[in-house]
Computed example of a mutant assay.
Amino acid sequence: MPENSASIASFWDAFAASFDEEADHGLRDPHVRAAWAGRLRSWMPPSPADVLDLGCGTGSLSLVLAEQGHRPVGVDLAPLMVEQARRKLTAAGFDALMTVGDASNPPARAGMSFDVILSRHLLWTLPAPDQALRRWIGLLRPGGRLVLIEGRWASSEPGEDQSYEVGSGAMPWMGGVEAEQLVRALRPLVKTLSVEPLLDPALWGRSVQDERYAIVAFA
C-alpha cells in the first residue's frame, strides 16, 4: 500500500456517493452506456474471460463486462467505492469479487492470473506507474492483454487539482499521460500494442477537447 493510502482512500471515498453522476462514471445514460459497451466488446477476447478491473471505482465497467459474459474482479483503494460496486453487481444478479486493495500492486486475494487487465484513468494517481505496469503485465496469462483507457487532460477534472493534496507532488503523471509517453513505457514490456483515440462525445456525455485514448497491449 502507498504510505498515504488512508488519505488517498478518504479522498476518493468523499466522491463515492456522487461519483456516478458523471456520465462516463455511472453509465446511466443509455447512449453513453452503449458506447462504452461497444468499445469494451471490441477490446475483450471472446467471453468468458477473467478480467481484473483495477481502480474499479463504483464498478460500472465491471458490470458491463459481467453483462457481456466475462468474469470481472474489481480492485479499488477506496472502501466506499468498492461498496457501491458490490451493490451494483449484486443488484444486477452477478456474484463478482469487488475488493479493497492497492490497484498498483493488486492483492493476492484478487487472483494471480488473468486474460485481461483493465484500468481507466488510473495511472495518473500512482506514484510509480512504470512499476505498476510491470506488475500488471506479470499477472497476464500467455497471450493476455492489457487495456488502458487514459488521456492527458488540458485541465484537471473538478476535485482532481489542488484538492488532490494527498501526494500529488509524487505523481509523475499528474493530469494524465500522453499516448506517446505511455507507448514508450509499454514497448519494452509487451509484444504488440495499438492506440485508439477516444474522442467520441457519446463516451463522455459531452464533447472533449483534450487527449483521450485506449491502448490495447498483448503480453
Score class of each variant (00 low, 15 high):
L189D: 00
V177C: 12
A170W: 01
R86M: 00
G169T: 06
G175H: 12
R187W: 06
T90P: 01
V190S: 09
V116P: 04
E150V: 11
L199K: 09
L146S: 05
E196M: 15
S113Y: 13
S194Y: 02
A170T: 04
P142Q: 06
Q131A: 13
G176Q: 11
T99D: 02
G93D: 00
L199A: 08
V183E: 08
P107Y: 13
R109W: 00
R187L: 07
G167T: 02
L189M: 14
H121W: 08
P172A: 02
Q181Y: 05
L198E: 05
G151N: 07
P158K: 15
M174P: 01
Q162D: 02
S163L: 15
T125A: 13
R152A: 11
R134Y: 09
A108P: 00
P197G: 10
V100Y: 01
S156F: 14
P158S: 12
S156K: 14
A128L: 09
M171H: 12
E160N: 10
S194V: 10
I149Y: 00
M171W: 07
R187F: 04
Q84C: 04
S194N: 04
I137R: 09
G151A: 07
G176E: 02
R120M: 05
A110C: 07
L189W: 06
L140V: 12
A132Y: 01
L198G: 06
V147N: 07
A92N: 04
T99M: 15
V166E: 10
P106G: 02
I149S: 01
R134P: 03
G175N: 14
G159F: 13
G169N: 06
L148E: 05
S104K: 14
P127L: 11
V116E: 01
D115H: 13
G169I: 10
A103M: 13
A85Y: 03
R152T: 05
S155I: 15
E150G: 12
S119G: 05
R120A: 07
G143S: 01
R141V: 04
P172C: 07
G144L: 08
E178F: 10
P172R: 10
A170G: 03
V100N: 05
L133Q: 04
Q162C: 10
K88Y: 14
W153E: 01
A128D: 13
W124K: 12
L118R: 03
I149K: 00
Q162E: 12
V116N: 06
F114S: 09
P188S: 07
E196T: 15
A185N: 12
G111F: 00
R145D: 03
R184Q: 04
